[in-house]
Simulated assay, not measured.
Amino acid sequence: MTRLLHRLSALMATLLAMIGALALGACSGSPEPAKPKTEFNIGWSIYAGWMPWPYAQQAGIVKKWADKYGIQINFVQVNDYVESVNQYTAGKFDGVTVANMDALTIPAAGGKDTTAVIIGDYSNGNDGVLLKGANSLAAIKGRQVYLVELSVSHYLLTRALEKAGLKSTDVKTVNTSDADIVAAFGAADVNAAVAWNPQLSVMKGEPGVAQVFSSADIPGEILDLMVVDTATLKANPNLGKALAGIWYETVALMQRDDAEGKAARAAMATLSGATPEMFDSQLKTTFLYADPKAAVAAATSPSLVTTMTQVRDFSFSKGLFKGASSADAVGIAFPGGKVLGDPARVTLRFDDTFMKLAADGKL
């Protein structure tokens, strides 16, 4: 169970369905008006950095903050990560847990105006490039690399090649589902792969295997977010306030070394289908933004603009902006008024408002 279950097939189906939406929905950066309401549904899928959300619901933290703002928030598990994003894009959820690249290439590229209200974490080693019989990334040249194409793994490979002074044409990718990649890498004639945890841990434990690049080498680029429909958020700012309160209280609890902190992590492990030891191991390669001040700094840093430029250029180069003539077709807005791409077509927004309220103790 990971945040990218069966990504390729679901993604391609979604993109085909959204060609028309891109042409129509992305023509305006103004979201459709929404009405105030009191009940909200948020989709989530299993990934170490997202387990605070369902645990908070189980522990009563969600109810505490929702009650404070006179609303009800339901966290709904979807076993397939991409399907959760698809359902959000289709309007079945008010928000969803999603990686930055997928927020851009699925809802935003499909014309659904989406706001990132919480930057929750970044992959700090949860994704890696593996080689057999070599300890240097340079040795990847000329090899067939097994990975889930058009996914975060594909992005990581591209960044690894750039760092090594290589081109994408220096390797040949072989599309492999996350469910099959461990077995595929076990074959004698397969000597290069890119994967994410928990598969990554299993694969790099095999004899003669070396991890030659990981997401820790590009810190802050593979981000995990809580996003909300922009129109819904605008009409219901209390939802953003409650989500910020839930996140920072829960993450503060899970980082404690006392009995309560350990119990919280153990409960999250159970919810994710892992042992406490496995879950703690996954947390070690997940940089959680537990301090709201650090999250605000990340949201307002010029490095976020740089990261999203790299992500959108990669996405466009791989044809993930269907029907677009340039990478500027999907506008991305940042705190302070900076816009990447077409200002008239902004459909992905990074908003530090609620993280800042938490940082300032004003929730």
Rank of each mutant, 00 (worst) to 15 (best):
S9K: 09
A17M: 05
A26Q: 12
E32A: 15
P33D: 10
P33R: 05
K35E: 15
Y47V: 09
Y47H: 11
G49R: 04
M51Y: 00
A56Q: 06
A56M: 06
Q57E: 14
A59F: 03
A59L: 06
K63M: 02
W65R: 03
G70Y: 09
Q72E: 15
I73V: 14
V76Q: 08
V78E: 08
V82A: 11
Q87L: 14
T89H: 12
F93Y: 15
T97I: 07
A99E: 13
L104D: 01
I106T: 13
A109Y: 11
D113A: 14
Y122N: 10
N124E: 11
N126H: 08
K132F: 08
N135I: 05
N135G: 14
I140N: 06
G142D: 03
V145S: 11
S151N: 08
L156H: 03
L161M: 09
A164I: 00
G165M: 06
D170R: 05
K172G: 01
A179T: 14
A179G: 10
F185N: 01
G186I: 01
V190P: 06
N191K: 14
A193D: 05
Q199K: 12
V202C: 00
G205C: 04
E206K: 15
E206L: 14
P207T: 03
S214V: 01
V228K: 02
N236A: 06
N236L: 03
P237V: 11
P237L: 05
P237F: 10
V251H: 06
L253E: 10
L253Y: 02
A267N: 10
A267D: 12
L271C: 00
A274Q: 14
Q282M: 14
L283R: 15
T286M: 12
D291M: 08
A295C: 02
A299K: 10
S301V: 02
S303P: 01
S303G: 01
V305L: 10
T307A: 13
V311R: 01
V311G: 00
F316T: 00
S317Y: 00
K318P: 00
K318Y: 03
G319E: 01
L320F: 06
F321E: 08
G323N: 08
S326L: 07
D328Q: 12
A329P: 00
G331S: 05
G337A: 04
G337R: 05
V339T: 12
V339Y: 01
L340M: 12
D342G: 07
R345K: 15
R349P: 08
F354V: 10
A359P: 08
K362N: 10
